[in-house]
């Protein structure tokens, strides 16, 4: 099933939260929804789940309009809201049973389904606890478990890894990856490595507008402007020596013995640096190309927009 967002606009009072955005996610795709705080990620997701109405435009889930076929759409959608609200006074299996029943799963099927989900989400040890007794990471799993219990075709996850420790983040990511086959998944995050690790495609949104919608690889390649390298020497080095390297645009001292060098477009400085080191008999300890990280691209995309 596909998720299609068409010309969506949403105001909160006078403030424009989402401004005429359109995108489409096909079946089997995992798409990262990226943007700074307040960019309109959650708003878009809330509209896609039918919780909030748009001012104009609409969202189609498998061709069904969320406004007019809200109940049908809700049946095939799994949603993890931001901050992961849960009924704290319920037991884990009790809660999953309730959610399963709400989705109309028969009691006999629900039994096997909920133990399947409990195992998939790594909740086996915690299943007889009250939700309030669980740590944040496990609560997050319960939130994901309830979004998955009815085997939804479309999965909408709003910041599934926020506030978790690095191990938990890895586990949740793996979980999302595991379950995502044959599903349409969109998740929002502001952790960029996550997008790199999980997604086929990334949609960057800023100030309610889409500023990029591309595959991760392509986005990184197209946005990379200049190549920079990091050089580390074993002792102190005079900057003047390095300034003589041909083709260099910018030199930055990181510590007394390491530098960041930026070359002109299309020039690989590594060979030049090596020659320079040999000429001046400096001993090189490290020489690596700085990867233009997604962080930078993200900054580039979102900060520029703000200024414009």
């Amino acid at each position: 099933m596909s998720l299609q967002v068409a010309h969506l606009t949403k105001y909160y009072g006078q403030q424009k939260a989402v401004n005429d955005i359109s995108f489409e996610i096909n079946k089997g795709e995992i798409v990262g929804f990226l943007g700074p705080n307040g960019a309109g990620k959650s708003t878009t997701m809330k509209i896609a789940t039918g919780y909030l109405p748009p001012n104009s435009g609409t969202v189609f889930v498998d061709g069904l309009d969320v406004l007019h076929h809200s109940l049908k759409v809700r049946k095939v959608t799994g949603y993890l809201p931001e901050h992961n609200p849960l009924y704290l006074d319920m037991y884990v299996h009790e809660y999953l049973h309730f959610v399963g029943k709400v989705y109309g799963i028969s009691s006999s099927r629900l039994k096997s389904r909920s133990s399947e989900i409990i195992e998939l989400c790594g909740l086996t040890r915690e299943q007889n606890k009250k939700i309030e007794a669980l740590s944040k990471g496990y609560r997050q799993r319960v939130g994901i478990a309830q979004a998955l219990i009815h085997d939804p075709a479309v999965l909408i996850l709003d910041e599934p890894t926020s506030g978790l420790d690095p191990n938990q983040i890895l586990e949740i990511r793996k979980l999302i990856k595991d379950i995502s086959a044959n599903k349409t998944v969109i998740f929002s995050t502001h952790i960029l490595q996550e997008v790199q690790a999980l997604c086929d495609r990334v949609i960057v949104i800023n100030m309610g507008e889409i500023v990029a919608d591309d595959t991760v690889d392509h986005l990184m390649r197209s946005q990379t402007k200049s190549l920079a390298i990091i050089v580390e020497f074993s002792g102190d080095v005079n900057e003047d020596v390095l300034n003589q390297i041909p083709g260099m645009k910018k030199l930055e001292r990181i510590t007394s013995s390491s530098f960041r060098l930026e070359g002109h477009q299309g020039i690989d400085l590594r060979a030049e640096v090596f020659r320079c080191a040999a000429d001046h008999s400096l001993s090189l300890r490290g020489l690596r190309q700085e990867e233009s990280s997604l962080e930078e691209i993200f900054r580039e995309l979102t900060v520029n927009q703000t200024q414009a």
């Binding site: 809330k46 919780y51 049908k72 809700r74 901050h83 609200p85 709400v102 989705y103 109309g104 309830q146």
Partner: peptide, 14 residues
């Protein structure tokens, strides 16, 4: 207050 209303209202319940 807890946000569970959002959970309930995005389930297939009228």
């Amino acid at each position: 207050k807890m946000g569970t209303m959002e959970l309930l209202l995005t389930k297939p319940l009228s």
